[in-house]
């Protein structure tokens, strides 16, 4: 389980959850409801922090250093929250097969709620006027390297990069898992508001929109959090029966799929991980010809790739 933290170190929680779900599917294990809620809370908080890195790094690659600092300042608070929860700030190893490792510490709910309020107002009053509405920034991204929905599907793009092309496809709604069916949120899709549908600005705008949706999800979860245990009863050594399982979840960088083959021992016979960044990078060769070097910087930044995810 700790290894899955490293698949995408910017969104380690989401990687944990995917792996745990795959093993649970092999075991046929039922996870306590409170644990499911906690998984969604940390997953969505991690989605916010991951997207913050993305929308902060994009302006920085385009020459504006300030928004990055503002974005990372908010991310710090999320790291603090996770530190309260599990003691780690980057590679959490919080999710366990059968549940999560710790219940909420006292004060976590209040602090999270305060952060969400602060975050929402920060996005509106600081981040949007500073960079989202910035004329130079919009012009730099508008119409750059548009991807049509058909091309996006052909190259296996997923997550925000796919939705930026105008396609309403989100595993949390279209192939629901965990407690997502019980939650209310919108799927943010690209609109081509400043240029062409599926351009770099859409990829940016989708991420900004998704963060605000994640805020909604976390709020609902905190409100409806049931009582109960956070771990199911699992044996000390987990030996899934022979067989194979595939589970895909909606991670911040696209669909994160785990394919596990078990041979009856306590180790996986085979484990294949499908990541979003890998697919995103594959389209680069087809997409980049004809654009300027400065645009290439914007294109790569807009895909929000993280290196270990490309290294498959």
């Amino acid at each position: 389980m700790p290894y899955t933290d490293r698949v995408d170190y910017v969104a380690a929680m989401n990687c944990n959850v995917g792996y745990a779900m795959t093993v649970e599917k092999l075991l046929g294990l039922e996870v306590p409801e409170r644990a499911e809620f906690l998984r969604v809370v940390v997953g969505e908080l991690n989605r916010i922090s991951s997207h913050l890195v993305a929308v902060g790094a994009m302006p920085m690659d385009l020459g504006a250093a300030t928004p990055f600092m503002h974005a990372l300042r908010e991310r710090e608070t999320i790291n603090d929250l996770f530190e309260m929860l599990c003691g780690a700030r980057l590679t959490y190893n919080y999710v366990r097969i059968g549940g999560v490792s710790f219940d909420l510490p006292p004060g976590f709910t209040e602090k999270t709620a305060a952060f969400l309020d602060h975050f929402e107002s920060m996005m509106r009053s600081e981040f949007d006027p500073l960079i989202s509405q910035n004329l130079i920034y919009r012009r730099r991204l508008a119409g750059v390297a548009p991807i049509s929905a058909a091309t996006a599907i052909a190259y296996g793009l997923s997550g925000p990069n796919l939705r930026a092309s105008g396609l309403d496809w989100d595993l949390r709604q279209d192939e629901p898992y965990s407690i997502y069916p019980k939650l209310e949120f919108d799927v943010v899709v690209g609109t081509g508001e400043v240029g062409v549908l599926g351009d770099c600005f859409d990829r940016y705008a989708v991420r900004v929109g998704e963060m605000l949706q994640s805020v909604r999800i976390v709020r609902q979860c905190l409100e409806r959090m049931p009582d109960g245990p956070v771990m199911a009863k699992v044996p000390r050594t987990i030996k899934p029966p022979t067989g194979e399982a595939f589970v895909r979840t909606e991670a911040p960088r696209g669909e994160l799929g785990y394919f596990l083959v078990a041979d009856g021992s306590d180790r996986a016979y085979r484990c294949k991980i499908r990541t979003g960044s890998f697919a995103s990078m594959s389209i680069l060769e087809a997409l980049s010809p004809g654009w300027m070097i400065a645009d290439l910087v914007a294109i790569i930044a807009a895909f929000d790739v993280v290196a270990p995810e490309i290294d498959r």
Partner: peptide, 11 residues
Amino acid sequence: RWTLPRFRYDQ
């Protein structure tokens, strides 16, 4: 200097 991003060459 600390507020704006960079122009592209054609811009």
